[in-house]
């Protein structure tokens, strides 16, 4: 009950946020929406199914490059089309990689996803003619709902229509994911996490369930990645680098992977914290590494674990 109130309050705060007139903070929130969507997907893999991917950044990069390719090479500017294309591309890539990855669990799954991520990274980096190499590709300003919003300047566009578009998308993503997690399919995934052998016995097709979770996570990742690339206006290979995947898992853990809203909270805290720490010291990695170490050692349930006493007792 209190969770529902908190979510409602958070939504109101986010909706009112740009009206406060602090454009800096409103633009700061933009990557949060993209990451939030991507992490909802990643948590389906890790939190629900128990598979730790160290190459999920692959799909974010895929979404970002889809956006870049469509806007700057093909002249497609409708964000709806871009997001749909990103989702389809994500799924298309996830099918072959997923088929291979879900044959393994635990550390081998992590290593295989890492290898795929780095494969894509080196492809982006080395095939200059297609991907622009280390300079990346530009992502042009998209049209939202068929409108160009031409009279608005860049910041006005981003903190205005695009902000609410992203927020709405995050809400839609969360609702969809909520339905997935609560469906028989989601329950099957949880059974797999708890005990794959028993799940198999009760009639859950373990490998197919894992595969489906992988594809869904990839689609969320690609959509989140496409959304991320719009405010930065750039898709660059570092999006696929393994440390980016590490950061995604970091956000997940920070928020708490055992809770549905944990990943979204993690993305939020990560982004705000990064902004704050970076303005204080250039050695933000050290601070973040220390935070991650503390979270891993002392609070494996993340922030949500701290906030929700039920969960603390339960696990």
């Amino acid at each position: 009950m209190s969770i529902r109130l908190a979510v409602a309050a958070a939504l109101c705060a986010l909706a009112l946020f740009p009206l406060a007139g602090r454009d800096y903070y409103a633009t700061l929130m933009l990557p949060f929406f993209g990451y939030g969507i991507a992490l909802l997907g990643l948590n389906l893999l890790f939190g629900t199914t128990g598979l730790l991917s160290f190459g999920h950044a692959l799909f974010l990069a895929l979404g970002a490059y889809t956006a870049a390719f469509l806007t700057s090479k093909l002249g497609v500017l409708d964000l709806e089309v871009i997001l749909a294309a990103a989702a389809v591309t994500g799924a298309l890539v996830a099918v072959p990689t997923g088929l291979l990855c879900v044959r393994y669990v635990r550390i081998y799954f992590g290593m295989l996803t890492l290898a795929f991520g780095m494969l894509f990274y080196s492809f982006l980096l080395k095939f200059y003619a297609v991907t622009g190499g280390d300079e990346g590709m530009r992502v042009l300003r998209p049209r939202l709902l068929g409108l160009a919003w031409a009279p608005l300047g860049k910041v006005e566009f981003l903190t205005g229509p695009f902000y609410y578009y992203s927020l709405a998308l995050l809400v839609v993503g969360a609702v969809v994911m909520w339905r997935i997690v609560r469906s028989p399919f989601g329950l099957g995934l949880r059974a797999i996490r708890e005990n794959a052998g028993k799940a198999e016995f009760t009639g859950v097709d373990v490998r197919r369930y894992r595969f489906c979770a992988f594809v869904v996570a990839a689609v969320f990742g690609a959509v989140g990645g496409a959304l991320l690339a719009v405010p930065t206006g750039l898709a660059d290979p570092l999006l696929a680098y393994w440390t980016h995947s590490g950061n995604l898992v970091f956000m997940l853990l920070l928020g708490g992977f055992g809770n549905f809203f944990g990943p979204v909270l993690g993305a939020f805290v990560f982004i705000v914290l990064q902004d704050q720490v970076m303005s204080v010291t250039q050695y933000w990695r050290f601070v973040f590494g220390a935070i991650l170490a503390v979270v891993v050692i002392f609070f494996p349930q993340g922030l949500m674990g701290l906030l929700d006493p039920r969960q603390r007792a339960g696990t």
């Binding site: 992590g110 440390t243 990695r285 050290f286 991650l292 494996p300």
Partner: peptide, 20 residues
Amino acid sequence: ESFQLLLTFALVLMFEDVIR
């Protein structure tokens, strides 16, 4: 082992800045 992997990732971040 996921947590162990993540803790070593935390070390990676920290050492990078120690060197810097």
